[in-house]
Write a protein that binds this DNA or RNA. Structure first.
Length: 550
DNA sequence: CACTGATGCGCG
DNA sequence: AAAGCGCGCATCAGTG
């Protein structure tokens, strides 16, 4: 059963019910009823808990952040939804919808970013307007999916993507438990006490003085790359850039204090007191998650840099008293995804335990470090250096896996598109600039075909890994709900980082939660690869703070 | 003064 | 010191 919500201009809501009269029949709209805005949450709650609705309702709406926060405010959790905006993006680009009107449709009102929360008033307030014609859009999407030869994948992908949208809203509302005290102590230990505005922290001044003295440049501002580069070269240190790697190659009294300074400056600027003031309130860090924000299907975040939390500050992620963090990380996810995609039996065998050790045992390379480097090189398209040198050795031992990424690369080089297991399709290099990820070389269609080949090569693996992660998270979410419900102090997700999940749980439940997380990973593997011989082991840690994991 | 691109570095 | 993918953010420098 699908229940479509459409906001009317008077602020109330039209609720349309869709069912299949019998399992083989087309989905049909059974009728629309008016729900007063003030009664919506109660209607949703009643429907969600109606035992007669055996299959469980799937709420269809234009854009999850426009609906779900207010439902949660009213204490109403939703099990499943269809986020039409996210699904539109997937289906419009999918190769498997070729021939359907949605496929490659001109950009329109559905090709927009998710509604942004307005920071000023309520934390979760969003604009009341809605995207135009959700019922017609829903009909288009259903017909695109049901007519597709890739139907099973697209059904799963759109469901997983939509569940991700629910999780993103739920995680933001829960927030990551964050101890401002621990963070402040950590900054103070590294940089000295918090300075007054406009001042450099005391713990950076000695480094700065040393740098200036060693370069004979008493007024140098090392934060200016141009200025620093001039000073370094004037001091006889011939570098083309001021990056850490290039600096490390030189012997000079300035190098050590300069690297120290840069490290501290980075911490100060990216995750210092200003960040703390801006992003941590009432003991929680609430990043803006952007599901589907990356072309490959990975999530992005906007503001707060949540996906780049440096290890140096993770000790500030502290469980509340009486609680633990369950931190789970999918080990060697992308190579395992490649194993499943390619059906490479030798690689599956190598992945029975630690995959990189298994590659060493296969005889392809001598050390675990080499195995990792070779694997990354294969998935990213390395052609030179240590990594590029090792790739051919991998190819001899794992020909099927290598053939898959090579084929993806060649397709890209020739201007074609590639798709993930479930059907997310790469942008066409011939597409207009507004279709491409911002960092992609614009002139790719004509010139840098090798770079585009590396992109499509990686797209297949990274994108399918993102699908696995969404399925993992979705499976975990429903298992958590089935076991603990959503009332009161129950285990819940607080952070998602591509192949890693963090949950905040009552201490007594921690071990059981850890087991459920593992079951969910196995379920994700089955959803994507059936009974194919590929494993998705996790590293799970039950800890008091995030820095204790791994 | 506002914007844009380049740089460097954090994460997977 | 970039080779080899995907991001976000702060800062600086140059432009309009």
């Amino acid at each position: 059963m699908f229940l479509l919500l459409e906001r009317r201009s008077d602020g109330d809501v039209d609720l349309t019910t869709y069912r299949r009269p019998d399992p083989r029949a087309a989905l049909t709209a059974e009728g629309t009823r008016l729900v007063r805005d003030g009664e919506l949450a109660e209607v949703v709650r009643a429907t969600e808990s109606d035992p007669a609705a055996a299959d469980g309702p799937r709420w269809v709406w234009d854009d999850t952040p426009r609906w779900y926060p207010r439902l949660l405010d009213a204490g109403v959790r939703v099990a499943r939804c269809v986020d039409l905006r996210l699904c539109h993006a997937v289906l419009r680009a999918a190769a498997a919808t070729a021939g359907h009107e949605l496929n490659g449709a001109p950009r329109g009102p559905w090709d927009v970013p998710a509604a942004a929360e307005r920071p000023s008033d309520g934390l979760f307030d969003v604009p009341p307007d809605s995207l135009p014609g959700p019922a017609a859009e829903f009909a288009r999407q259903r017909s695109a999916i049901e007519a597709s030869p890739g139907r099973r994948g697209l059904e799963l992908l759109t469901a997983a993507e939509s569940t991700g949208a629910l999780v993103a809203v739920e995680m933001r509302r829960r927030g990551i438990p964050w101890s401002a005290d621990v963070h402040d102590r950590l900054l103070t230990r590294a940089l000295g006490p918090r300075p007054s505005p406009g001042e450099r922290p005391a713990g950076m001044r000695a480094d700065l003085d040393e740098v200036r003295a060693a370069l004979g440049a008493p007024d140098l501002n090392p934060d200016s790359t141009a200025e620093l580069l001039r000073s370094l070269n004037a001091a006889g240190i011939h570098v083309a850039s001021t990056s850490k790697h290039e600096l490390q190659r030189h012997e000079h009294p300035v190098i050590e204090p300069l690297l120290r300074y840069k490290l501290k400056q980075r911490l100060l600027v990216a995750n210092g007191w200003t960040w703390l003031d801006a992003w941590v309130h009432d003991g929680r860090f609430r990043p803006d998650y952007v599901p589907g924000g990356v072309v490959t299907g990975r999530w992005a975040t906007s503001g707060g840099g949540a996906l780049q939390l440096p290890r140096a500050v993770r000790a500030a992620v502290v469980a509340d008293p009486g609680h633990r963090l369950v931190v789970a990380d999918a080990s060697q996810l992308e190579p395992r995804i490649l194993t499943g995609l390619s059906g490479d039996g030798a690689m599956a065998a190598a992945g029975e335990g630690d995959l990189y050790e298994g590659i060493v045992r296969s005889g392809a390379v001598a050390t675990r470090a080499e195995a990792k480097l070779a694997m990354l090189g294969a998935m990213y398209g390395a052609t030179s250096g240590e990594s590029g040198r090792l790739v051919p050795r991998l190819a001899r031992q794992f020909p099927a896996a290598m053939a898959l990424v090579e084929a993806a690369a060649r397709t890209g080089e020739q201007g074609g598109v590639v798709s993930t297991l479930l059907g997310r399709t790469s942008p066409s290099p011939a597409a207009g600039a507004d279709e491409l990820p911002p960092e992609m070389p614009r002139e790719t269609a004509g010139r840098d075909t090798r770079a585009w080949g590396r992109f499509t090569r990686n797209f297949v693996v990274q994108g399918t890994a993102a699908e696995w992660a969404l399925c993992w998270m979705g499976a975990l979410r429903s298992r958590l709900h089935a076991r603990w419900g959503d009332e009161g102090d129950v285990p819940h997700l607080v952070f998602f980082l591509h192949d890693e999940l963090v949950l905040h749980v009552p201490s007594a439940a921690a071990d059981e939660v850890a087991a459920v997380v593992v079951e969910a990973a196995a379920e994700a593997g089955r959803l994507l690869f059936g009974e194919a011989p590929v494993r998705f082991p996790l590293t799970v840690a039950v800890v008091d703070d995030y820095s204790q994991a791994k």
